[in-house]
Simulated assay, not measured.
Amino acid sequence: MKPTYLLALLLFLSLARPAAAQMYSTTDPFAHTFSIVARDPATGEMAVAVQSHWFSVGTSVSWGEAGVGVVATQSFTNKSFGLRGLALLKGGKTAQQALDELLSNDEGRDVRQVAILDNQGRVATHTGKKCVDMAGHQQGAQFSVQANMMLNASVWPAMAKAYEANAKLPLAERVLAALDAAQAAGGDVRGRQSAALLVVRGTATEGPWADRLIDLRVDDSAAPLPELHRLLSLDRAYDHMNAGDLAVEKNDMPTAIREYQAAEKMFPQNLEMKYWHAITLANKQQVPAALALLKPIFKQEPNWRVLTQRLPKVGLLTVTDAELKQILAL
């Protein structure tokens, strides 16, 4: 945002309300945007997804914690609503109770837009009366869609319709379908720049590092939603890669091969996926098949050959010396 534009906005706000009722803080970014919070009743997973014409919108709008809930805080964003909202939910408040408490002493409530979803699927949404048109929200069964500074007032109804129509999709793909519908209906009046997707478990585990199932951001792009779709597909492919790695640890080579093949099929140009598929084949005494995969990999990027030399030392490549020489000679 250009300094002159920011100064003009601040001047407008100072004239619109008394100085004691400041609505904007330099620590809180503008995030005029559209978003969705939702819970999958079958799995309990919860998601928040967002797109905006603003840099790195996911660092401001999207908040979530496994077993607790998700929050989207936007328009004249109050970032504290994310952590404070989750803390209130964790303390036993419902989504509506948490939202009411957040807004109760917020002098900027008229320019806020906030959506909260708790682990029971209850939603609470607020669109301040001074959010920039077109602005509004719509709630449904265990979800809420909200938008401000949109090209037209059909954006958030289109989001709700798309979300409800795609009930058979996994939650991540379903909320992205809602974002796609928003963009197709007109989206942000300024255009598009960034997007984010966060999915957390319905129940917290003993390993909180694994409780964020999906955490993807496109911070700056001419087409953030297509890129977010690509990243989600890549994330799904690497789930197969991780499952293949786990199978290798358990010496379950047939499963490892199946998982690596599934990943490679999703992203056939990804050398990483092809490479570990090939190494697994070699470890299963299928060296000719491994050679066929490794030859174009080594040709495209010789450093994979360097890596291959290092694998026998740590037990990740268990071929004979003769077979190793054959592989390295490719």
Rank of each mutant, 00 (worst) to 15 (best):
S60Q: 13
G67P: 09
A38Q: 11
V70S: 00
W54A: 15
A49F: 08
W63F: 15
T59G: 14
W54V: 12
H53P: 00
M46P: 01
V57Y: 08
V70N: 03
W63D: 00
R39Y: 04
T59N: 15
V57F: 09
V57Q: 05
G44C: 13
I36P: 02
S52F: 08
S60V: 04
G64S: 06
D40Y: 08
G67R: 09
S75N: 12
A38L: 09
A49E: 04
T59D: 14
A38K: 07
I36V: 15
A49K: 11
T73F: 07
E45L: 06
V37E: 05
S60R: 12
V70Q: 00
V68Y: 00
A66Q: 04
A66C: 02
G64R: 03
S56G: 12
F55Q: 01
A38G: 04
V48M: 07
F55P: 00
S56K: 09
Q51L: 07
R39A: 12
V37F: 03
R39W: 04
V61M: 06
S62N: 15
A66M: 05
P41R: 05
S75D: 13
Q51F: 01
S75A: 15
G58K: 11
M46S: 05
M46A: 05
V50A: 05
T59H: 11
F76S: 04
E45V: 00
D40V: 06
S75C: 14
F76R: 02
G58R: 10
G44Y: 14
M46N: 05
V57E: 02
W63E: 00
A66W: 02
T59R: 15
G67Y: 06
T77L: 07
S62K: 05
T77C: 11
W63L: 03
G44M: 10
A42G: 07
E65F: 00
D40T: 06
H53S: 12
G58C: 10
M46T: 03
V61D: 03
V50L: 12
A38I: 09
G67M: 05
T77V: 12
S62E: 13
Q51E: 15
F55T: 01
V50P: 02
E45D: 15
D40Q: 09
Q51H: 09
S60M: 05
A66R: 06
G67Q: 06
G67I: 10
Q51V: 15
V71S: 08
E45A: 13
A42W: 03
S60I: 00
V37S: 02
H53Q: 13
D40I: 07
V61Q: 02
A38T: 10
E65P: 00
